[in-house]
Amino acid sequence: MSETQIYSLRVNGKLREVTDAWLGESLLYVLRERLGLPGSKGACEQGECGSCTVVMDGAAVCSCLVLAASAVGADITTIEGLTDGALTDVQQAFIDEGAVQCGFCTPGLIVAVHHLLDNTPKPSEMEVKEALSGNICRCTGYGRIFAAVTRVIDQRAQQ
């Protein structure tokens, strides 16, 4: 398509060039379809499900609502950039507590939980629920997700 412009995004610590992209593309689309980072998921395209959550300049945001070409200069961390391969404590707790079923909401939730615990190391039950209220899960009813977050909070408190 004609309406393109070359730009670069800093994703997971690396500067990635985006070429040949239509300028109306969301950050979610560019991550998934152009940068080979399909871990962020799209389920609503309007910021009502949280599946596409990434951290941008220290804030957890919906990547579907970021115009990719406007994110030049921002530091973006996706689910793929959380670790080098080993599971984080949050990821392990999600597996152990049965917080994963279909798994479509999971990457967004993992990013949101890490972001919460980075900023609020010992959140109350209500703080956890409020912080995750933008991440819809259709399979679990959230019970196992709360259990996983509680497990991480307890584990970190013991360390």
Partner: peptide, 11 residues
């Protein structure tokens, strides 16, 4: 535990 859990939590 789910065998696909690791892949799902990592995206």
């Amino acid at each position: 535990l789910r065998p696909d859990g690791g892949a799902k939590v990592q995206g």
